[in-house]
């Protein structure tokens, strides 16, 4: 089960991700994110505070989102990772690819507005 709740702060999309992202729902997750993102968004912040599990298929979906944003000079930021989720990002090296912030406010602050 994965739930994505989005809100727009000017041209930044904030997405609260709740539950798990694994092979069984990764398509649903990708779809939810893709439809929420607008071409004019210059950044997407994924809030993982309530994310309890992410599989490699989930990481790939995050990577695909980051790549498609990058292709038009937009950014993907992650924030509020639990210890377990942070560990998954650290082991795979994804923490070196994607900016990770302790909180949504700090993620927002890192984008000069």
């Amino acid at each position: 089960m994965v739930n994505v709740t989005t809100e727009r702060i000017d041209d930044i999309l904030s997405a609260d991700v709740e539950g798990r992202i694994d092979g069984s729902n990764v398509v649903q997750f990708e779809e939810a994110v893709r439809t929420a993102i607008e071409d004019s968004d210059r950044a997407v912040i994924m809030n993982f505070e309530k994310l309890v599990y992410i599989s490699s298929a989930g990481l790939r979906a995050i990577l695909l989102t980051a790549k498609s944003l990058q292709n038009r000079d937009a950014k993907l930021l992650l924030c509020s990772l639990s210890d377990r989720i942070r560990e998954v990002f650290e082991i795979s090296g994804f923490d070196k690819i994607l900016p990770i912030h302790p909180s949504k406010d700090e993620a927002l602050a890192s984008l000069d507005r």
Binding site: L59, L63, I91, S92, G93, F94, K96, I97
Partner: peptide, 29 residues
């Protein structure tokens, strides 16, 4: 390349994760 770090079990009963070398999963960058 971004894989779970192996565990070393010593003959004296101690154990530890292999010291990290960082590294990113392959096929991305």
């Amino acid at each position: 390349g971004g894989h779970n770090p192996p565990v070393i079990f010593r003959s004296d009963g101690t154990f530890s994760l292999l010291p990290t070398t960082d590294g990113i999963a392959l096929g991305i960058f």
